[in-house]
Design a protein around this nucleic acid. Structure first.
Lengths: 142, 142
DNA sequence: ACTTGACCTCGAGTAAGCTTTAGGATTTAT
DNA sequence: ATAAATCCTAAAGCTTACTCGAGGTCAAGT
């Protein structure tokens, strides 16, 4: 099966503009063209696009994703590099999640405070923000 | 205790430029000035700055954080709004973490593949990228 | 007193990741 | 056969969040 850019845009939930932008940035090197220059996506392209979306969702910048795509296009001899990149991104992701978990704890603390403030009817500005709370946020000790 | 902008920059691990930028964007409404215009931060300011950093870490745009700060400055009558904002951000954060967890599963799958490819010595381009993998990424079913 | 360092404003510059516009060609449906 | 939909490139524009530089004021140490 092959697909036009519009179908891919819909399937991947990206705009056509964004796909063309990705192409310009070298992320769609593997996409074929018709004799009139229209892009033709294959099922394999959808698969690689999914990988791109996955890496993007972890916050990897497009130029790094481009490196991955380049390696994919180069072939099997770049598997060690790709393995390294993916392993590294796994670590990045785990760190991100740990950081978000801390922020979630902090937000939960805030939520609790505001809830109590509403129940008891307090009047001080930001009274929830006790010093040890700020310290926990700053030092990441939550 | 009061602090100059440089001390705050160091304590919060932000550049002086960034702090001044935040001020320009209305995030530091509460910071006092000397008669000569120098910013004077209090302990309470550090606490509110910590909250700002916390919201920022969850990806909230500065203009939304500004709304929160405005409410804080307005006083206790905005506690319901602040509670709503914080509750909502908690949900955003939980969704983010769920999404990242899916991506982590996908990345783990990739890692496994590349590991095996290295051990068994495979040669196909992106052969790990089987269709059902792409589908899982696209549909978020991981 | 005077030099050094920290602060100030304002305005311009940067980078990433799109988004829009203009102008044109090609498909597809009726 | 023709109108509408879809595609193309190239270039400009936009948003967010800084980051830097120029030109100047003020405070602290020697």
């Amino acid at each position: 099966m092959t697909y036009a850019i519009g179908e891919i845009a819909e399937k991947m939930n990206l705009s056509i503009h964004t796909l063309r932008y990705y192409d310009k940035e070298g992320l769609l090197l593997f996409v074929q063209r018709t004799e009139n220059g229209r892009r033709v996506f294959s099922d394999r392209d959808i698969i690689l696009l999914s990988t791109i979306e996955c890496l993007k969702a972890t916050g990897m910048p497009l130029k790094d994703i481009r490196q991955y795509v380049d390696w994919c296009v180069e072939g099997a001899e770049t598997i060690p590099q790709r393995y390294e990149l993916v392993k590294n991104q796994k670590k990045v992701l785990e760190d991100q999640m740990a950081q978000l978990q801390k922020m979630l704890n902090a937000i939960n603390y805030k939520c609790e405070f505001y809830k109590q403030a509403l129940e008891t009817g307090s009047t001080e500005l930001c009274e929830s923000d006790r010093k040890e709370w700020a310290e926990k946020v700053v030092t990441g000790k939550f």
